[in-house]
């Protein structure tokens, strides 16, 4: 099963290396990782997607906790949460196919953010299924390049993943 972990870390040099190193050393697989600042100065948040059984995830969480720079680890898959990812996708787009493309983009509430004579760049946000669905639809037009941010997630409601 896939788990989404929210990991609050001290914003110190090498902290990403420590986390990544831990995963490779213990044989855990990171499927996906997104890192960024939080509203608290000095604290960054990593959103890590890992595949594994309950026992493996338990070990992952405990081992992460042991890293001195890790402040808090929460498993967001265990609670109601919202999750999003952003994807930029560059596709072949001759003048003939542009309106078809435009329609797909609208259906998926995406945005065209760049147009050139032979190609377009489209921006989509959403969950995993949405990304896969839109990729599938664009295959026939010709996908030139894809880049994804990795997933980020928050708990639903007023509760927060605080540093406590």
């Amino acid at each position: 099963m896939k788990h989404i972990l929210a990991v609050l870390v001290e914003d110190k040099p090498g902290v990403l290396t420590r986390v990544a190193g831990l995963f490779s050393r213990r044989g855990f697989n990171i499927e996906n990782i997104a890192v960024g600042e939080t509203n608290n100065p000095g604290i960054s948040r990593m959103t890590i997607t890992v595949e594994g059984s309950e026992t493996i995830i338990e070990q992952v969480i405990k081992q992460l906790h042991k890293l001195v720079n890790v402040i808090k680890v929460s498993n967001l898959s265990e609670e109601p949460s919202v999750m999003r990812e952003l994807m930029l996708i560059k596709i072949t787009a001759e003048s003939g196919s542009r309106s078809d493309i435009q329609q797909i983009v609208e259906t998926f509430r995406g945005k065209v953010i760049d147009v050139s004579p032979e190609s377009m760049i489209i921006e989509v946000t959403g969950n995993e299924e949405k990304m896969e669905a839109i990729k599938l639809l664009f295959i026939d037009f010709g996908i030139k390049e894809i880049v994804r941010t990795g997933k980020v997630a928050l708990l639903r409601g007023t509760r927060i993943t605080s540093e406590s």
Binding site: P13, G14, T17, G21, L22, R25, V68
Partner: peptide
């Protein structure tokens, strides 16, 4: 520090 990351409890540069 890179070399000893997996074999120290923590390290500093």
């Amino acid at each position: 520090t890179g070399i000893t990351m997996p074999i120290t409890k923590h390290n500093y540069l």
